[in-house]
Nucleic acid binder design. Sequence first.
RNA 1: GGGCGGUUAGCUCAGUUGGUAGAGCACCGGCUUUACACGCCGGUUGUCACAGGUUCGAGUCCUGUACCGCCCACCA
Length: 944
Amino acid sequence: MSDMRELSKGFDHASVDPKWYEFWESSGAFKADPESSRPPFSMVLPPPNVTGVLHIGHALNQTLPDIVCRWKRMTGHDVLWLPGTDHAGIATQNVVEKQLADEGTDRHALGREAFVERVRAWSRQSHGTITSQMRTLGSSVDWSRERFTLDDDLSRAVRRVFVTLYDEGLIYRGKYIVNWCTRCRTALSDLEVVHEEQAGRLYHVRYPAAGSVADPPAEGAADPQAEGVAGPPAGSGADAAGVADVAESGGAAGRPDAAAGRGVTVATTRPETMLGDTAVAVHPDDDRYRGLVGRTLRLPLVGRELPVVADEFVDAKFGTGAVKVTPAHDPNDFEMGRRHDLSQVVVIGEDGLMTAEAGPFAGQDRFAAREAIVERLEAEGLLERVEDHRHSVGHCSRCHTVVEPLVSTQWFVRIKPLAGPAIAAVKDGHTRFVPENWARTYFEWMNNIHDWCISRQLWWGHRVPAWYCDQCGNVIVDEDTPAACRCGAALRQDTDVLDTWFSSGLWPFSTMGWPDATDDLARYYPTSVMITGLDIIFFWVARMMMLGLKFAGDVPFMVVYITSLVRDAHGRKMSKSKGNVVNPLQVMEDIGADAFRFTLAALASPGMDISLSEGRLRGYRQFVNKIWNVSRFVLMNLPPTLTERPPVPPPDGLATIHRWVLHRVSELAADVTRALEGYRFDVAADRLYHFIWHEYADWYVELVKPHLRDEADDGDRQRAIAVLLGVHDRVLRLAHPFMPFVTEELWQTLPAPADAAEDGRTPDGEARTITRAPWPRPEPAWTDDQAVSVLTLLQEVITAVRTVRAELGVPPSRRLRLGIEHADPDERAVLDGHGDYVRRLAGLEAFEFVASVPADPDTVRRLVRRMRLHLPLAGVIDRAKETGRLRREIDKLSKQLGSLEGKLDNPRFRERADPDVVAETEARHSAARRRRDQLDEVLKELSP
RNA sequence: GGGCGGUUAGCUCAGUUGGUAGAGCACCGGCUUUACACGCCGGUUGUCACAGGUUCGAGUCCUGUACCGCCCACCA
């Protein structure tokens, strides 16, 4: 055992950290126990991509919940923190596709089955990376319950949810305009499209007049409603108005119209889509075009006749007030097309190339076609004007390709019926956002939510559980694979897979065994807290809320803590191109997981982005080292015979310094606990830092040293050791959630407590571990204001003497004699009673109380408590420097006095302010005046 | 266009219910004080973005302005 008491000179995380994680894992320290009599506390880990590596966002989003879990474990909860990984459909598929491309092949060459098998194999291999990195960080998850979104039982949950929603009419399939990535070759949900403001051009193109309105073209694109169970409602008001106008103008169609003769100029940012135009729209109230509605124009380059329709959507103030309508390639036009029963002409294909419908431009890339078409228009004299125009363009969030709106058959979730309860649950406080402002963002989105496109034309993911019969046209949606159609023909399964967030949305309950009524589900659902990043509030949090309420019968979590973005030291977003990415693995290698975690916690001010600076990281690494060295100090002072940690003695018989430190450590426990309860990780970390370094190490350790000397009285020594150990043990336990590795290492070197309840054994009772040691509670019996005021006085006097010495340049080795004046009798008694401490920490040979100032050139002449009056001796110091310093101080005091006097002279202040505040202000005022007068006097003395 | 946040010491940020402006880093000076130089002791640094208002009193509450940032959005 005694070799355990010898710590190395510094903390070496590389040798310590892995040892303890292995110990925790193998001893079952993180295992949840449904049989336990302890109250449950549960969280699910936001599943990282199975093929991902730990980035700074993960580090934060795992450190904070880990702090909570470790804390809750110590407060006696049965903690479940359920880990797992996400198959991350499109992201993972893209990576593997890139690998294939490097090998000179592609997924089509491989075939679906082989491709999926390949992705699966790579996922399995890659899975170890992220999970081992989580261990490096110290995440205290229950690995025995690890899940993967593509696991069989989770896939079963996915199918159950899909089928149920379908049966209830909340999932439908239909042909609508969707966001299409021409590179990934799949549909995307609105959330997977990132809009970026870009410099573009607004082309003004003249569409010449053709003649009067013809019947709407009957041929062409499919009926948008064809396969829909039910489509989104069409804008009825605008629709009626538009139709009425057309009819009305139709009557006047025969009348010659000057405007019609010239044609109409439309403005567009995407001239290539004009080939698919099937109308031109104007606002119904726009007088400029009133006569035109109902007539037709001729589409340049193509020659097709286009009706002019009136629609409320058109903004008369934008461009020319006339809009070309391309129902197949623009979401607004799609809706407008439905309102006016326009056909869809598809001119851009799923590959981003112009289709056969594009005539001479067929086969060209859409952007090349834009150039070519502009050229042609110019040649034909139809391009009237080109303006620079900034507008936002949608890009694929995965590959940054410009998204092409395309008409396509997809599966959708009708979301409004699900959103309602999810909104209500937050409104009525059943689920609470922290910081609460995020609820607004949540409401904002939920109130304006659109149907969710859930099908993806990918291979990696949960395949849509729908089967089609080519014989009779029957569609079967079922949990189990049907053998054959009712007509006896073979069935063909839908080739699409589901949006990866569909399965993520079930995560809080699918991981616990749903749809079976498992013990875990009964005990751990709803989970206590969800801690996750702001970037996935919509993707994930909102969907978990909706699906959890719908299927698990309750909200998925009682509290959502939204973490901030981690930025670089100058508040810039981290990005590879800027080269300012902080790699958490590198940081942990350099300074250890404990210091890294502590830094993240200390910087995690709610609602604010985190600027991760090297200075802070370094500072907290040194803090870890500080704790290490305090422990060395404690251990080296333990008698070798001590095998058991003695209980902390009752404060009555203890010296002031002991009573003081016990009081303070009790307050620390209260403060840290309160901070954690409010999710103020920054406040908790700050409090620990300050106490451990600037109270415990700087003061208590220094003050206690004499008590530990060999010469010290035996009983005194034993009491000091008991208190020191009691404080040290509590400090380690309070710091443990933040710095799990170093605290376990140090805690294990302490002698075990006599009290079994303090021992922290794992559930199997085999091993002691700080992870299960009880969380320190405030001790009311340790409250001791008298000890606090004594220590405050000692600290002030000692600091004042040190200041004088430093300013006079008196080396610490030189023992001084000191005269103190103006101490009141009570304070004199305190100082006398604690003279040893003062002499030791201030480096004094002696001090005495004097009535007046002795003119002794070898001593500091005076020291006035609370006034930090440092009077240098003539001849010993630089007179000019000192007078300058005094003048500055006097100026400052005068200013302060002015404001205090203003306050006190104000009758209303005396009337209305709290009496304590008034008294305090008066005291402050008189103290300041006394001090200024004294400084004035000294200044006069010093000045020639 | 809508929403949210920020503007406090050279840098990055705290500032609880309004009551003498704080921390870390940086900087300056001094220290082989037997846990720690990843240390110890001391020190310097602020018209709290701007303009009004409420109040005896505002970094803190209200209104407006400026600048920065983020999110959402179907303006061709």
